[in-house]
Design a protein around this nucleic acid. Structure first.
Length: 424
DNA sequence: TCTGGGGTCCTAGGACCC
DNA sequence: TCTGGGGTCCTAGGACCC
């Protein structure tokens, strides 16, 4: 029988912060997005206070203060490192682990030996991860990925499951579907759940009971697949996409934004550089580079402007210098003189192809071997001495478009200076 | 005053081909 | 007056996910 497990870290970013601040257990915690803009993670206590996901920080600041909520800026270095620990533990429990996001992974339990007590096995896994990493997780096990996601939410919600909910019979499935709101189903977002509500569908069971014809008539294939999955037919695969099809690096600028052309160029150079690193990390080259920048969507009092410009190269590249150079060319081409306060900018690499084989251009003027040698050498130096130690001059000596991180915790697991001191 | 970042997939419509 | 049929490819926009 086909069975999937979904392991989900509970309130992941908050839990990461708690690992090194045990005094925060049972106290409300929130983690903010880049620039300390929005609330992007909440502990259960913060959820109980009514703090909503994605709320702008300034709108809840008073509420958080009044309730002595611990506030953190996002510390992705720390979260990435703890995620890696969790994932490597999970991989010991399954022949095949699909990492779905920083805090979630699917486990393949299909060929577990007959007679194996999967519920006990799952509970043991949950205990082990929690004990070894300090991160609490919930595990759902079911015949399809969509149902496994659902089961994991039950595991999270009800203490009686001891962190693991096994949904392996039709009877259990029917019961769960009837209790599960349609808008919480994986793959059903705000828009579609609203349409479903209009048809009188409020729970996953209501939806699953509709005919396939009806679903196909009113919605697209993606929604039809979700319907099948709820009915126990596995048809959504989490493609192992080691090769991303687009790579994006973007940031919002703090305060009123960036209007100085040189600062914008410096920012774009750094985004392009980071994109190129990600590109090489997955062993790819890209043929198209898009640069974008836009003024605030919210502030109607300042003039609005948007830059969206793409360039296509004749030969795919992975060289930082070339990608930065082209990105700046694109930016300069699209730049409009005038005082615009850009609130956000970014670089997107597209048309991504494997680094080998690489289609050459008969009239190519670049010495590709030399370029590759230079790139590799710089990568090696930076690997040993720290990110961006060697970089292009245009990237600047300090990051002038500075991001706000007022409540940043230490990099306890990745920086020797930040190691926790334990008193004796 | 202050509003995140990084992805994927599907579909409709237009351009173009013979 | 009257204007076919069958295809592919690309793009923008919308929906979804964490």
């Amino acid at each position: 029988m086909q069975l999937f497990g979904l392991a989900d870290c509970n309130n992941f970013y908050c839990s990461c912060e708690r690992v090194f601040h045990p005094e925060l257990n049972n106290r409300p915690v929130v983690v903010l997005s880049n620039n300390d803009g929005c609330v992007i993670a909440r502990s259960n206590e913060s959820k109980a206070l009514g703090v909503k996901m994605g709320t702008p920080f300034y709108q809840v600041r008073q509420l958080l203060d009044d309730n002595h909520v611990a506030v953190f800026s996002s510390n992705y270095t720390l979260y990435g490192s703890l995620s890696h620990r969790v994932m490597s533990l999970l991989s010991q429990y399954t022949p095949h682990l699909d990492i779905y996001s920083i805090d979630e992974a699917f486990l393949d339990f299909s060929d577990m030996e007959k007679g194996c007590d999967l519920k006990a096995y799952g509970e043991q896994l949950v205990r082990r991860v929690s004990k070894s990493t300090g991160i609490p997780i919930s595990l759902g096990i079911a015949p399809t990925r969509t149902l496994a996601k659902m089961a994991s939410k039950f595991a999270k919600k009800y203490k009686g499951y001891h962190g693991c909910c096994l949904m392996d019979t039709d009877e259990k499935r029917q019961k769960a579907l009837a209790l599960f709101p349609i808008e919480d189903v994986w793959g059903i977002g705000r828009r579609i759940s609203k349409q479903l509500e209009y048809f009188g569908i409020h729970t996953a069971a209501d939806f699953a009971a509709k005919s396939e014809r009806w679903v196909r008539q009113h919605f697209n294939v993606t929604t039809a697949r979700t319907w099948e999955e709820l009915n126990g037919v596995s048809c959504i695969s989490v493609d192992e996409l080691p090769q991303k099809q687009s790579i994006c690096t973007s940031r919002s600028f703090s305060d009123q934004g960036v209007s100085d052309r040189h600062v914008l160029e410096e920012a774009v150079a750094n985004f392009a550089s980071r994109c190129a690193e990600k590109l090489r990390h997955q062993g790819s080259c890209c043929k198209s580079i898009m640069v974008f920048a836009y003024t605030s969507r919210f502030n109607e009092r300042v003039p609005a402007h948007m830059i969206y410009e793409t360039i296509t190269l004749s030969v795919a590249t992975q060289s930082s210098a070339e990608i930065i150079h082209e990105a700046l060319k694109v930016l300069r081409r699209a730049y409009v003189p005038g005082t615009y306060y850009y609130k956000k900018a970014g670089v997107i690499l597209m048309d991504i192809v494997p680094e080998r084989p690489c289609q050459q251009d008969l009239f190519d003027k670049v010495d590709r071997r030399k370029q590759q040698f230079l790139t590799r050498t710089i990568d090696r130096i930076n690997l040993l001495n720290g990110q961006n130690k060697v970089r292009l001059a245009i990237q600047g000596t300090d990051i002038r478009f500075g991001l706000k991180h007022e409540y940043l915790s230490h990099r306890y697991t990745t920086n020797i200076q930040d190691l926790l001191v334990v008193k004796v």
